[in-house]
Design a protein around this nucleic acid. Sequence first.
RNA 1: GCGCCUGUAGCUCAGUUGGAUUAGAGUGCUUGGCUACGAACCAAGAGGUCGGAGGUUCGAAUCCUUCCAGGCGCGCCA
Length: 565
Amino acid sequence: MIADEIKNKILSHIEEHFSEEEVSIASSKFQIEIPDSPEKGDLTCNIALILGNITKSNPKEIGLEIGNILKELNLVSSIEVAGPGFINIFLNHSGTLKIIKDILNKNTIREEADSKKIQVEFVSANPTGPLHVGHGRGAIYGDVISKLLEKKGHEVQKEYYVNDAGRQIDILTASVYLRAINIEDNIFPESAYRGEYIKEIAKNADLQEAVNIDDLFKSLPEEDEEKIDKIISNLKSASEKDWKSIKKVSLESVLSTIEKDLEDFGVTFDNWFLESSLLGADSKIDAAVQQLNTNNLIDNRDGNIWFKSSDFGDDKDRVLIRTDGRQTYFASDVAYHKDKLDRGFDEIINIWGSDHHGYIKRVEASLEGLGYDKNKLSVKLVQFANLIKGGSPVKMSTRSGEFYSLEDLLSDVGSDVARFYYLSKQTDQHLDFDLDLAVSSKKENMYYYIQYAHARICSLEKKAGLKDFLAEDISEDHVDICSNLIHEISKYPNVLEKTCNNLSPHLLIFYLKDLASIFHNFYNDNKILDKSESEKLTILAVTHTIKEVIADSLNLLGVKALEEM
RNA sequence: GCGCCUGUAGCUCAGUUGGAUUAGAGUGCUUGGCUACGAACCAAGAGGUCGGAGGUUCGAAUCCUUCCAGGCGCGCCA
């Protein structure tokens, strides 16, 4: 890439003229960027400002010196030092062609020198019902950042952590069980899952033993949560065999629904990790607790077993094992994260709903306490997405069974539109996702605006009757008419790099919107197919590059570029 | 009370690892452009103390301090 060439040239120059320390500071902040306006050059560089700052000397003088060196490059036509000391670089025609060639040859991103083994864990919703739209944002984000990391050359594993061992699974089982024995709505417990899907699962329940309904509901506690717990234990003792089989059927059924819903949005996982696998004979939870104990980080107080997480900056210590011997959810998580790192990942990324942010410290503390480097874990928080339909937010709640599911979203707007809008805003901000807008045909709808640019270019190319579009078709005599287009195109590698490094897909989306805008503008001003042959070829090669950029970018986001609309 | 996040045009948001005399889009408002390669498009105008106040420096929407406002989290729940 052209920016690399320039960067290398500058680095080798400053290595000769500045101290090692100065070079190391400078190279960490050193950037080759594309200026907002072409008048400030095809590329611009801040190196003189940084060096001026470090060495307390005049940036403009340093800039002139470096500028002279850059003139030696055969891609550069001229240099100016502007403003406080920016080095603005103007390319000659072969420099311009190089930009286009790199993009057409998909030479758009530099892979990381040290490829890492990275695990991304996301969604991990409790398997108690279909996914709702609140889960969608994390699902799409996790999927896309996995693609971005792969683009950078890392090896990525996508994992779903299945909470199949907790109380909520008992509630699910009980809910199905109660439907299977035809408990009517009027006495169906409030705190059980009431969705229609429960009734569907219950149809597949194959009960061996009869349950006495009067015994089941006899002298239940008043309070809802206590009531459901009592029903659970009654059902378990009524028939252990049926309980187990219903549990199995329920879990399998819910998980396959979840898997299918995700697949419909193009989200797949490499591994489904069961919480229950941490329990059992050689319990990984016990092993983790044991290791913390060895490290002197376990405290027995009030009959509970505590992890002294406050030793590592957590607000307070946390219980791992309760008086009655039951492990807490946190205990599973300690063992789970230990297990992840034991599997040899260089980096593990968790995507959590932002309401879990208070949980980060204690998990980090547990990793430190176990003797791992806590910096190997990074947690990306995703704020909730509000879906707006007909001007008001749609509700989501699993227990009541009244919710707008991911499946509903699919049939309302489709996977591509949904993915696009989920990604269209920074993940740490609330997202208002307006379903009516997402399928409307207004400019306000970024999705169609970008797709329209792509479809228009496809249509142009069809009309022009050309198959190949080569950078070499760009003629020096006519390139000026496309300079705005080329300037915007040249930002692509930078945008891509920023998108990957910051794991911020929205940056790519906003770039595509700008690129589409510049194209639409050009299209309106120029009747491309009426131009002279060589001018036409020039323009079509450039617009073809735009088409490739849009298609590549959308592909990276898991969205299909439309050839016609 | 403590912690995390947020505050940019009437509205929805980009820009935040300090950079360019003029802080950008869309929408809404006022206007103009199809005998037209796709009008699902384009152009022009109006609209801002970048929450307030201090500070750091060649330079601040961006960093620091403080205050104000909003969201979320502060269980042996999952």
